[in-house]
Design a protein around this nucleic acid. Sequence first.
DNA 1: CATGAATGAGGATTCATTCAT
DNA 2: TATGAATGAATCCTCATTCAT
Lengths: 217, 217, 217, 217
Amino acid sequence: MHADNGAAMRERTFTEVARRDQIVRAAISTLAELGYAETSLGKIARTAGLSSVGMISYYFDSKADLMAEVRTTVLAGAEAEVGPRVRGAPGKLAALRAYIEASLEYIAGHTAEMAALFEISSGRRTRVESTEEDIEAVSVRIVAELVAGAQEELGIPDPLDPRVVARAVRGAIRTATAARVQEEGSAHPVDLSREGPRIADLFERSLRFVPDPGGSR
Amino acid sequence: MHADNGAAMRERTFTEVARRDQIVRAAISTLAELGYAETSLGKIARTAGLSSVGMISYYFDSKADLMAEVRTTVLAGAEAEVGPRVRGAPGKLAALRAYIEASLEYIAGHTAEMAALFEISSGRRTRVESTEEDIEAVSVRIVAELVAGAQEELGIPDPLDPRVVARAVRGAIRTATAARVQEEGSAHPVDLSREGPRIADLFERSLRFVPDPGGSR
Amino acid sequence: MHADNGAAMRERTFTEVARRDQIVRAAISTLAELGYAETSLGKIARTAGLSSVGMISYYFDSKADLMAEVRTTVLAGAEAEVGPRVRGAPGKLAALRAYIEASLEYIAGHTAEMAALFEISSGRRTRVESTEEDIEAVSVRIVAELVAGAQEELGIPDPLDPRVVARAVRGAIRTATAARVQEEGSAHPVDLSREGPRIADLFERSLRFVPDPGGSR
Amino acid sequence: MHADNGAAMRERTFTEVARRDQIVRAAISTLAELGYAETSLGKIARTAGLSSVGMISYYFDSKADLMAEVRTTVLAGAEAEVGPRVRGAPGKLAALRAYIEASLEYIAGHTAEMAALFEISSGRRTRVESTEEDIEAVSVRIVAELVAGAQEELGIPDPLDPRVVARAVRGAIRTATAARVQEEGSAHPVDLSREGPRIADLFERSLRFVPDPGGSR
DNA sequence: CATGAATGAGGATTCATTCAT
DNA sequence: TATGAATGAATCCTCATTCAT
């Protein structure tokens, strides 16, 4: 076997990097267009303008390997946009808002990547490595930290469970994305560029909310 | 062809009903365990303890037909538990809470069914019929109505967009489900039986929240 | 096995005869509509309004058995119409003309039967019995006798080989039939009712023709 | 997909050409031997000495694709022999004779090809493309032109309908072919090499025939 | 008489992967 | 580096036939 994507790397030639990138991009398009179940190496090769399927096998150990690379690439791209904005936010609540808004903006501008990511995570079951941690689990942990910080920052007397909120936040982002894809032809499609602030508002309200001391619940 | 799911209905034998049920249950298990992409009629047959794949084809016109039956079955089960509780709730806010709690309770007791449903909706691309409306779209519409009613009920001065909230609610439910599946082996798995009230609390807070006139935002 | 279509017959009950006929007629329709390759016992059963395929197996030993019955039935029908007219003709030449015209008239009125017959003879290869003689071979022999008789009758000095003429006659009949089926949607479809006399004229001319003693050929 | 028979042509490797040819030849043998209904890719593969069925799918997009190639190949071969002789004939009547004789000579030397062609045209129902015009329809049109020309050439007072004659000619050719295949084991098999001139004689007589002014008919 | 159930072989097709060049 | 060739398993599906009731 020639290709190798393990931990201890050898150098990659320029051609190799370019080819891999070309293939990964073709895979993203294909996944987004056809879905995981209908995506084959042959179709990816055709999308990439490659004459043979063997070419992919040459650069990637297996289909799973390619899928993993797609995942990594897409996640890295998202992190590159979302991460700095979260880290540059003044305070935890602002960071949470930044996370939500940046996520939805990124999603809005990278439909194919997100669709591909979605297809991979829902279409594949066999984990390549144990290190390939679940996207959602990681995201939830990160968001939960922001939520916990924000509630602390706000000094809420009866805080919500950060992980519950975090899962809701992630769910809201995911559902908004999915809705956008599905309502594409609808009369009132979801406008992702406006969705971010609205979702942020929603969660900010729940975090800011102070239970009425004499309230019913 | 023997199996028939068209308009002009035929009587169904006892054996037929039993077999179909047996196959549907096997399909649910297989989908939940392997995911849509890895679920084949052969694997379903093996799970069902059937000797031949042809047996499935005998009772279902096609794989799509079987998947549709799975979908219908699971949705009917969920509706039977969630629907009455929502309709029996005193008021819209209570109905929203009932919806969330009942959903999570049902999910908690029917992990495999929900996973199967999830796999079908995300894994299949070719819609069987246009009438087979997207589960999420329908759910969002229903929840949005509850949200709108609740906000009206509460007399909130600056209400949130009901559809934004609805998508967040659905997202929270889905993510909680997914989290439960994925964290099965984890140290702190999600306890779905407690998750419902917490998610309901979260959204109730955001709906009850009255912006401070002199607040920072 | 219950059904039996061998030579030494036992009595057939009324129901049995009726059922067999019903099935044979359904087979003819199906063959004519779908062609041999697409005709299955299941489809024949559905066409016949029978609920189960087993019914056919009950009355016919095998698919081949049913096909043989279809063949026999159709041929008997044709013979019943063509035979008397040929035998009643005044003279051999007239008999040949009667054969051609009656054949085409019968074909014109029994499209489905003829199509079914055509499908069976071209679609199936495994001979059921050696006694199931080839239709064409038999027909050619019969026509050849008429041709030979006609030439004798006319006293042609340099007669044509009767079998050559006979094969041409049969070919003309077949091709006319096929042309009718294929040109159904065409602008100038073949009118089978007029085709008979024309084909008869054609062959009568070739039989009547007396070579010019001083001619080139 | 590897095989390609679309518009945008790709270079064909030496191996590819050889393999395709090998498969086409195997298909011809199988069709001729078993008939269309019994011809499967598996049997063709076995005939071709190929270990796997997948091999055929690798070189041909579908079974229909392969059948189309068989058709094209056989027709091209026939045209290459018959065409020049028809076009080189001195006059229309001579051309008609050349057509008949050349056709039967070609058929005599290519029994399997012709049988395969016959099986394909009669066994398949779903037309690949509308441009794939029916062989018989085309042939009849060509022959009809020759017939019309010949009658004009001969200056016959009461000419026959050229299309009627053309269909008869085609029918005679086809029936002679079929007869040859079926009478292979017979005592007096048809000798196709002598059949051509005889059939030509037959039709020449009918074209040359001048009705007797005082004749019976 | 009739039917529904069941079976298992065989149909075409797709695909990931390996290999020789 | 790159490519085309080849393989064999697995996909869904159809079908003729058998059998128990």
